[in-house]
């Protein structure tokens, strides 16, 4: 019965009621990446997990990994950083939800991604303390796309490789993974010069604060790219659109 215990920091990506009293969780753990776990008794007994199974909090989790199954068992979960400020504004909740969805959809199971974990940690902390920012959301999305090998091509045409002139608007084609020059057919989305520059700065790991309109433009392009790869629509994006209507 080779049972292994794993102590790790983690974020909750999804929680689904299971049967009368349990929950099935999808966790982004620092040590092992995305893992599924069952939290026995989580629906009835609040003594066991308290408020720790609410999204957005940074947790310290103890998991029992079982060799016979991919479903770990959550033994303990303690809140390290509650990030309660995220739930004070609808837009913050929407942006946090979109980020967690992206991690859930793009991460491969049982594959550690410490860089994305740290990026998510500081992203949620910033949402908690400073409130929503589309620009920071774009930064996190780029990081998630990059660790899953889906980073968009932003410096040169995805077809002919010709460099994109700086500070100029460019066409973006999700199906061809990035910017495409006019002579190769362009793409359905126009990225403004400033949005493109901001994206390139963020992709290069530099701090960049995109203005609201440019951040929206960049976020739309990244969403289209992600949805094209996943073959379906992202729910978080739909939620954000509905609450801002």
């Amino acid at each position: 019965m080779g049972r292994e215990t794993l102590d790790t920091r983690a974020f909750l990506l999804k929680s689904t009621p299971y049967g009368e009293s349990d929950r099935i969780l999808s966790l982004f753990t620092e040590a092992r990446g995305k893992l599924s776990a069952i939290a026995l008794g989580a629906r009835r007994s609040r003594k066991r997990f308290g408020g720790s199974l609410e999204p957005f909090a940074l947790l310290q989790a103890r998991l029992a990994l079982r060799p016979s199954t991919d479903l770990a068992r959550l033994e303990l979960a303690e809140v390290l950083e509650p990030n309660l400020g995220v739930s004070k504004q609808l837009v913050s909740m929407g942006q946090a939800g979109a980020a967690l969805e992206l991690c859930r959809e793009l991460l491969a199971p049982d594959q550690p991604e410490p860089r994305l974990f740290r990026a998510l940690e500081s992203y949620l902390r910033a949402l908690d303390v400073r409130g929503p920012s589309l620009s920071r959301m774009v930064g996190l999305e780029l990081c998630a796309l990059e660790v899953s090998g889906l980073h968009p091509r932003l410096g040169e045409c995805g077809v002919c490789g010709k460099p994109v002139p700086p500070r100029r608007a460019a066409r973006f084609d999700p199906a061809r993974g990035g910017v495409v020059c006019r002579s190769d057919g362009g793409g359905p989305i126009t990225l403004s010069g400033r949005a493109l520059e901001g994206l390139r700065a963020l992709a290069a790991g530099r701090d960049a604060e995109l203005a609201e309109g440019d951040a929206k433009n960049a976020a739309d392009a990244l969403r289209a790219l992600t949805e094209w790869h996943l073959g379906r629509q992202l729910k978080g994006a739909a939620f954000l659109r509905q609450i801002s209507d």
Binding site: K14, P55, G97, L234, K235, A238, F239, R241, Q242
Partner: peptide, 11 residues
Amino acid sequence: LLAPLDGVGPE
């Protein structure tokens, strides 16, 4: 209820 993680929006 609204569910930001499951995409249940006001609509």
